[in-house]
Design a protein around this nucleic acid. Structure first.
Lengths: 114, 114
DNA sequence: GGATCTAGTTACTTTTTGATACCTACTATC
DNA sequence: GATAGTAGGTATCAAAAAGTAACTAGATCC
Protein backbone atom coordinates (compact mmCIF):
# COMPACT_ATOMS: atom_id res chain seq x y z
CA UNK A 1 0.00 0.00 0.00
CA UNK A 2 1.40 3.32 -0.95
CA UNK A 3 1.46 6.20 1.43
CA UNK A 4 -1.41 8.53 0.83
CA UNK A 5 -0.39 12.13 0.68
CA UNK A 6 -2.52 14.10 3.06
CA UNK A 7 -0.88 17.47 2.71
CA UNK A 8 -3.50 19.97 1.76
CA UNK A 9 -2.30 22.31 -0.92
CA UNK A 10 -4.26 25.13 0.56
CA UNK A 11 -7.37 25.09 2.62
CA UNK A 12 -10.39 25.68 0.41
CA UNK A 13 -12.39 28.19 2.44
CA UNK A 14 -16.12 27.86 2.50
CA UNK A 15 -16.31 31.12 0.58
CA UNK A 16 -13.27 30.73 -1.56
CA UNK A 17 -12.38 33.83 -3.57
CA UNK A 18 -12.31 31.83 -6.76
CA UNK A 19 -15.92 30.75 -6.44
CA UNK A 20 -16.81 34.17 -5.09
CA UNK A 21 -15.60 35.90 -8.23
CA UNK A 22 -16.92 33.25 -10.58
CA UNK A 23 -20.39 33.55 -9.12
CA UNK A 24 -20.36 37.07 -10.54
CA UNK A 25 -18.71 36.62 -13.91
CA UNK A 26 -20.14 33.13 -14.44
CA UNK A 27 -23.03 32.44 -16.75
CA UNK A 28 -23.36 32.78 -20.47
CA UNK A 29 -22.72 36.25 -21.89
CA UNK A 30 -21.75 37.77 -18.54
CA UNK A 31 -18.02 38.16 -19.21
CA UNK A 32 -18.79 39.57 -22.62
CA UNK A 33 -21.17 42.13 -21.15
CA UNK A 34 -18.50 43.25 -18.69
CA UNK A 35 -16.00 43.33 -21.51
CA UNK A 36 -18.11 45.70 -23.59
CA UNK A 37 -18.99 47.87 -20.62
CA UNK A 38 -15.35 48.12 -19.62
CA UNK A 39 -14.69 49.90 -22.90
CA UNK A 40 -17.54 52.38 -22.60
CA UNK A 41 -21.01 52.73 -21.17
CA UNK A 42 -23.66 51.27 -23.42
CA UNK A 43 -27.40 51.29 -23.84
CA UNK A 44 -29.63 48.23 -23.70
CA UNK A 45 -30.15 47.90 -27.43
CA UNK A 46 -26.52 48.69 -28.12
CA UNK A 47 -25.47 45.80 -25.94
CA UNK A 48 -28.03 43.64 -27.65
CA UNK A 49 -26.38 44.47 -30.98
CA UNK A 50 -22.87 44.06 -29.56
CA UNK A 51 -23.67 40.60 -28.25
CA UNK A 52 -24.99 39.11 -31.44
CA UNK A 53 -27.43 36.35 -30.62
CA UNK A 54 -28.31 37.24 -27.06
CA UNK A 55 -32.01 37.36 -26.29
CA UNK A 56 -33.44 40.40 -24.53
CA UNK A 57 -34.57 38.13 -21.72
CA UNK A 58 -31.09 36.93 -20.91
CA UNK A 59 -29.62 40.38 -21.32
CA UNK A 60 -32.15 41.75 -18.85
CA UNK A 61 -31.42 38.92 -16.42
CA UNK A 62 -27.68 39.52 -16.58
CA UNK A 63 -27.90 43.27 -16.21
CA UNK A 64 -30.26 42.97 -13.27
CA UNK A 65 -28.04 40.50 -11.51
CA UNK A 66 -24.94 42.57 -12.14
CA UNK A 67 -26.74 45.67 -10.92
CA UNK A 68 -27.89 43.87 -7.77
CA UNK A 69 -24.32 42.81 -7.13
CA UNK A 70 -23.13 46.38 -7.41
CA UNK A 71 -21.04 45.70 -10.47
CA UNK A 72 -23.08 47.60 -13.02
CA UNK A 73 -24.73 50.98 -12.81
CA UNK A 74 -28.10 51.63 -14.47
CA UNK A 75 -29.08 55.17 -15.33
CA UNK A 76 -32.22 56.32 -17.12
CA UNK A 77 -31.44 59.27 -19.36
CA UNK A 78 -33.97 62.10 -19.82
CA UNK A 79 -34.20 61.64 -23.56
CA UNK A 80 -37.17 60.82 -25.67
CA UNK A 81 -37.86 58.07 -25.81
CA UNK A 82 -36.08 57.46 -22.50
CA UNK A 83 -32.89 55.49 -22.89
CA UNK A 84 -30.98 53.55 -20.27
CA UNK A 85 -27.23 53.77 -19.90
CA UNK A 86 -25.34 50.89 -18.36
CA UNK A 87 -21.82 51.31 -17.06
CA UNK A 88 -19.39 49.63 -14.70
CA UNK A 89 -19.29 50.79 -11.11
CA UNK A 90 -15.93 51.14 -9.33
CA UNK A 91 -16.55 47.63 -8.02
CA UNK A 92 -17.16 46.48 -11.56
CA UNK A 93 -13.89 47.99 -12.66
CA UNK A 94 -12.17 45.67 -10.20
CA UNK A 95 -13.23 42.84 -12.49
CA UNK A 96 -11.39 44.24 -15.49
CA UNK A 97 -7.98 42.73 -14.70
CA UNK A 98 -9.51 39.28 -14.42
CA UNK A 99 -11.39 39.65 -17.69
CA UNK A 100 -8.29 40.99 -19.38
CA UNK A 101 -6.21 38.10 -18.06
CA UNK A 102 -8.75 35.67 -19.47
CA UNK A 103 -8.68 37.43 -22.82
CA UNK A 104 -4.90 37.41 -22.79
CA UNK A 105 -4.86 33.67 -22.18
CA UNK A 106 -7.39 33.27 -24.95
CA UNK A 107 -4.93 34.91 -27.34
CA UNK A 108 -2.14 32.64 -26.16
CA UNK A 109 -4.30 29.58 -26.65
CA UNK A 110 -5.10 30.58 -30.20
CA UNK A 111 -1.42 31.03 -30.95
CA UNK A 112 -0.46 27.72 -29.36
CA UNK A 113 -3.29 25.59 -30.64
CA UNK A 114 -3.68 27.18 -34.03
CA UNK B 1 -39.28 51.47 -43.96
CA UNK B 2 -36.81 53.61 -42.09
CA UNK B 3 -33.25 52.34 -41.99
CA UNK B 4 -32.36 50.92 -38.63
CA UNK B 5 -29.23 52.15 -36.94
CA UNK B 6 -26.57 49.58 -37.37
CA UNK B 7 -23.49 51.25 -35.96
CA UNK B 8 -21.30 48.33 -35.05
CA UNK B 9 -18.74 49.20 -32.43
CA UNK B 10 -16.50 46.35 -33.43
CA UNK B 11 -16.70 43.47 -35.82
CA UNK B 12 -18.36 40.43 -34.27
CA UNK B 13 -15.48 38.16 -33.18
CA UNK B 14 -16.46 34.73 -34.37
CA UNK B 15 -13.85 33.08 -32.16
CA UNK B 16 -13.34 35.71 -29.54
CA UNK B 17 -10.49 34.96 -27.14
CA UNK B 18 -12.75 35.52 -24.17
CA UNK B 19 -15.13 32.74 -25.16
CA UNK B 20 -12.17 30.65 -26.28
CA UNK B 21 -10.63 30.69 -22.84
CA UNK B 22 -13.91 30.37 -21.00
CA UNK B 23 -14.79 27.26 -22.95
CA UNK B 24 -11.82 25.69 -21.19
CA UNK B 25 -12.08 27.05 -17.67
CA UNK B 26 -15.87 27.19 -17.72
CA UNK B 27 -18.03 24.63 -16.03
CA UNK B 28 -18.45 23.80 -12.40
CA UNK B 29 -15.29 22.77 -10.53
CA UNK B 30 -13.00 23.35 -13.51
CA UNK B 31 -11.23 26.46 -12.22
CA UNK B 32 -10.80 24.82 -8.85
CA UNK B 33 -9.22 21.75 -10.44
CA UNK B 34 -6.76 23.94 -12.30
CA UNK B 35 -6.08 25.86 -9.12
CA UNK B 36 -5.12 22.73 -7.22
CA UNK B 37 -3.07 21.33 -10.07
CA UNK B 38 -1.22 24.62 -10.46
CA UNK B 39 0.20 24.09 -7.00
CA UNK B 40 1.34 20.51 -7.55
CA UNK B 41 0.42 17.37 -9.40
CA UNK B 42 -2.32 15.40 -7.74
CA UNK B 43 -3.89 11.97 -7.89
CA UNK B 44 -7.54 11.27 -8.69
CA UNK B 45 -8.63 10.60 -5.13
CA UNK B 46 -6.54 13.47 -3.84
CA UNK B 47 -8.40 15.83 -6.09
CA UNK B 48 -11.64 14.27 -4.99
CA UNK B 49 -10.71 15.08 -1.40
CA UNK B 50 -9.48 18.55 -2.28
CA UNK B 51 -12.72 19.40 -4.03
CA UNK B 52 -15.09 18.50 -1.26
CA UNK B 53 -18.45 17.57 -2.71
CA UNK B 54 -17.44 16.77 -6.26
CA UNK B 55 -18.70 13.46 -7.60
CA UNK B 56 -16.28 11.06 -9.26
CA UNK B 57 -18.36 11.30 -12.39
CA UNK B 58 -17.91 15.02 -12.77
CA UNK B 59 -14.25 14.84 -11.80
CA UNK B 60 -13.65 12.23 -14.49
CA UNK B 61 -15.52 14.32 -17.02
CA UNK B 62 -13.51 17.43 -16.23
CA UNK B 63 -10.14 15.70 -16.25
CA UNK B 64 -10.90 13.97 -19.54
CA UNK B 65 -11.96 17.21 -21.15
CA UNK B 66 -8.94 19.07 -19.83
CA UNK B 67 -6.69 16.28 -21.02
CA UNK B 68 -8.28 16.32 -24.47
CA UNK B 69 -7.69 20.07 -24.61
CA UNK B 70 -4.04 19.59 -23.81
CA UNK B 71 -4.28 21.44 -20.53
CA UNK B 72 -3.80 18.52 -18.18
CA UNK B 73 -1.39 15.62 -18.32
CA UNK B 74 -2.45 12.13 -17.17
CA UNK B 75 0.20 9.64 -16.13
CA UNK B 76 -0.35 6.15 -14.78
CA UNK B 77 2.24 5.33 -12.15
CA UNK B 78 3.65 1.79 -11.85
CA UNK B 79 2.53 1.37 -8.26
CA UNK B 80 0.21 -1.17 -6.84
CA UNK B 81 -2.58 -0.56 -7.07
CA UNK B 82 -1.82 1.64 -10.03
CA UNK B 83 -2.28 5.30 -9.33
CA UNK B 84 -2.81 8.14 -11.75
CA UNK B 85 -1.04 11.46 -11.49
CA UNK B 86 -2.60 14.55 -12.98
CA UNK B 87 -0.58 17.67 -13.65
CA UNK B 88 -0.73 20.82 -15.75
CA UNK B 89 0.90 20.81 -19.14
CA UNK B 90 2.85 23.86 -20.30
CA UNK B 91 -0.36 24.91 -22.02
CA UNK B 92 -2.20 24.48 -18.76
CA UNK B 93 0.30 26.70 -17.01
CA UNK B 94 -0.70 29.47 -19.36
CA UNK B 95 -4.04 29.48 -17.58
CA UNK B 96 -2.53 30.25 -14.20
CA UNK B 97 -2.38 34.04 -14.59
CA UNK B 98 -6.07 34.13 -15.43
CA UNK B 99 -7.01 31.95 -12.47
CA UNK B 100 -4.83 34.03 -10.20
CA UNK B 101 -6.39 37.24 -11.46
CA UNK B 102 -9.82 35.83 -10.71
CA UNK B 103 -8.73 34.81 -7.23
CA UNK B 104 -7.25 38.25 -6.68
CA UNK B 105 -10.52 39.91 -7.65
CA UNK B 106 -12.31 37.52 -5.36
CA UNK B 107 -10.22 38.81 -2.49
CA UNK B 108 -10.97 42.41 -3.43
CA UNK B 109 -14.68 41.69 -3.60
CA UNK B 110 -14.64 40.20 -0.14
CA UNK B 111 -12.87 43.26 1.22
CA UNK B 112 -15.24 45.65 -0.51
CA UNK B 113 -18.49 43.85 0.10
CA UNK B 114 -17.71 42.44 3.52
C1' DG C 1 -11.70 -15.72 0.40
C1' DG C 2 -13.29 -11.40 2.14
C1' DA C 3 -12.07 -6.67 2.88
C1' DT C 4 -9.87 -2.72 0.96
C1' DC C 5 -7.51 0.20 -2.04
C1' DT C 6 -7.08 2.11 -6.65
C1' DA C 7 -9.60 4.74 -10.59
C1' DG C 8 -13.09 5.15 -12.54
C1' DT C 9 -18.12 3.74 -15.21
C1' DT C 10 -23.14 3.41 -15.84
C1' DA C 11 -27.91 4.43 -15.40
C1' DC C 12 -31.14 7.52 -13.74
C1' DT C 13 -33.02 11.80 -11.96
C1' DT C 14 -33.10 16.49 -10.91
C1' DT C 15 -31.90 21.12 -11.50
C1' DT C 16 -30.51 24.81 -14.01
C1' DT C 17 -30.06 27.23 -18.00
C1' DG C 18 -31.01 29.38 -22.13
C1' DA C 19 -33.66 29.85 -26.47
C1' DT C 20 -38.11 31.10 -29.08
C1' DA C 21 -41.73 33.67 -29.82
C1' DC C 22 -44.80 36.99 -28.61
C1' DC C 23 -46.52 40.87 -25.64
C1' DT C 24 -46.54 45.51 -22.83
C1' DA C 25 -46.11 50.52 -21.91
C1' DC C 26 -44.53 54.86 -23.11
C1' DT C 27 -43.21 58.60 -26.39
C1' DA C 28 -42.59 61.16 -30.55
C1' DT C 29 -43.23 61.62 -35.43
C1' DC C 30 -45.71 61.48 -39.66
C1' DG D 1 -54.15 57.59 -35.19
C1' DA D 2 -50.80 54.45 -37.33
C1' DT D 3 -45.98 53.57 -37.00
C1' DA D 4 -41.61 53.15 -35.11
C1' DG D 5 -38.32 53.22 -31.49
C1' DT D 6 -37.26 52.83 -26.53
C1' DA D 7 -36.66 49.06 -22.69
C1' DG D 8 -38.02 45.49 -21.23
C1' DG D 9 -41.71 41.23 -19.47
C1' DT D 10 -43.99 36.54 -19.99
C1' DA D 11 -44.88 31.98 -21.11
C1' DT D 12 -43.35 27.82 -22.79
C1' DC D 13 -40.13 24.43 -24.12
C1' DA D 14 -35.75 22.01 -24.94
C1' DA D 15 -31.24 21.02 -23.80
C1' DA D 16 -27.41 20.88 -21.02
C1' DA D 17 -25.39 20.32 -16.86
C1' DA D 18 -24.80 18.33 -12.55
C1' DG D 19 -26.06 15.25 -8.65
C1' DT D 20 -27.11 10.30 -6.76
C1' DA D 21 -26.35 5.81 -6.23
C1' DA D 22 -24.76 1.64 -7.46
C1' DC D 23 -21.44 -0.95 -9.76
C1' DT D 24 -16.80 -2.74 -12.24
C1' DA D 25 -12.16 -4.61 -12.18
C1' DG D 26 -7.51 -5.59 -10.88
C1' DA D 27 -4.30 -6.02 -6.92
C1' DT D 28 -2.87 -6.65 -2.19
C1' DC D 29 -3.44 -7.61 2.67
C1' DC D 30 -5.02 -10.49 6.42
Amino acid sequence: MIARRKNKVESPPVNCPLSECLSIIGGAWTPNIIWYLSAQSRRFSELKDDLQGISPKVLTQRLKKLEAEGVVNREVMPTSPPTVEYSLTPLGNELKPAIEAIVEVGHKLKRLKG
